[in-house]
Design a protein around this nucleic acid. Structure first.
Lengths: 244, 244
DNA sequence: AATGGCTGTTACAAACTGTTACCGATCGTT
DNA sequence: AACGATCGGTAACAGTTTGTAACAGCCATT
């Protein structure tokens, strides 16, 4: 039965994708359509686990996630590593490496995906020609800074269960903005990736999901998530809203 | 006696400041000198605790920290707040709010400081006129994203003592890049601010500093820090370097 | 259909961090 | 010089998160 449900979800995905309606909201208005005439765009198809780019490879392009989703992994010299972002379709990756000779992180497809490669020097040139494009790119970069800061705040101030709740709400909002269901979706990443992103252990993520399910806030079936009570999830993820 | 030492440090600060040599490295080359002729710059003097700008105020300018240091504080709707960055002289604040109608965080002076206000619309215009400036601003924004990511990695993978060690090393490197001593400096922020930034409680910061002092890695006298053993500090802050 | 590998779940004990409380030091003010 | 407020340090105790381990479910391969 869960098989059937999962399929119904993927058909939603297919529908929305075929509608060709990519939310520009999620990229702060940086839309590849705007530079189509000025920059040659290369399309690349990716299977789960394939790299969009790797740390240390020469920086040459930004990438627009057209279909699917990717994870971004930061890695330190001493071997530590962490997932620092998940990017869904309609979002940009690669901007963090602007100004460097080589990419500063790994980007890996979570599912079968398609990215549009936007060679950076041409993008830069186009920005000078199209004043609007410049401010859009700058705004997209600034938004990326804010997303990081905002997530730092979450990591620094929320407990394990609160982080998991906040993570689900964030994903739900982004799926909804894309035209998918905001209360029923499939996690494209494994527990270990979620845990890494939330600065927890994967067992702790499991336990938190289990507890949220026990309290009927959500329904969990491995990677399939149903949000049963948005209000309760928000309450859980916002400590100050609690009654003392 | 500690009084004397503290004074010797502040004279170092005074010296380097008077030398007028602001590192462009720390701003990825975004230097206010470059736009002097295109943008009218306003100078502002700040006393400790004063705001450079507040969350919700209309966004209008970037700020270049000319003298002193500031903290950046993120605050959530539900009241949670966290210090998300410390900026020393030669660094830029305000870039995270580009593209928004209002500033997205608080910036507060930690000591007597001077900031140069750079009205943003003129900066943007100047970027279109000076191609080089555009790439410098973009690069500065990208660097800000990477700094955030890199700190997220630290928060997510390091223990309390490792974070404190990493924090001290980061400060040391930045002071050294500015021409100050990298092994003897004064913390401009209180323990609570450090704790907030490191996602710890201030008691834990105290314990960690105490333990680092016990092992002769550093010397602590309230806000005065001497790094006695850089190598040991690096070892502490890099888990994988440990021998099993 | 059976196997092995990977992923996810749960229980229990241990470790680290947070909490609370108190004390001393410093600084600005009266 | 005395005062209060803020800041910093220490300690005992409580709590959450983690580590370890065992088990179950899914999937690809044989």
């Amino acid at each position: 039965m869960s098989q059937v449900v999962a399929q119904s979800v993927s058909s939603q995905v297919a529908n929305a994708t075929h509608a060709g309606h990519i939310s520009v909201h999620s990229t702060q208005g940086f839309d590849p359509e705007l530079i189509r005439e000025h920059v040659q765009i290369f399309r690349r198809r990716l299977e789960p686990g394939q790299y969009v780019y790797r740390t240390g490879q020469p920086f040459h392009s930004l990438f627009f996630v057209r279909v699917g989703s990717v994870k971004m992994c930061e890695l330190a010299d001493d071997g530590r590593e962490q997932v620092t972002a998940f990017r869904l379709q309609g979002e940009i990756v690669g901007a963090e490496s602007i100004g460097l000779a080589t990419y500063s992180c790994d980007v890996i497809a979570l599912e079968t995906s398609e990215v549009w490669e936007l060679p950076y020097p041409p993008v830069l040139t186009a920005c000078l020609r199209i004043p609007d494009l410049h401010s859009r790119l700058t705004a997209a970069l600034a938004q990326e800074i804010r997303r990081g800061r905002s997530w730092m705040l979450a990591l620094g101030t929320l407990t394990a269960e609160q982080r998991v709740a906040a993570f689900l709400l964030d994903l739900a909002a982004r799926y909804q903005a894309l035209g998918f269901s905001g209360s029923h979706f499939i996690l494209r990443m494994c527990r270990a990736d979620i845990a890494s992103y939330l600065a927890l252990k994967h067992e702790t993520v499991s336990r938190a999901l289990g507890h949220l399910a026990d309290t009927n806030s959500i329904d969990v079936e491995r990677r399939e998530i149903r949000i049963l009570d948005h209000a309760e999830l928000r309450r859980v993820s916002s400590p100050s809203t609690q009654v003392h």
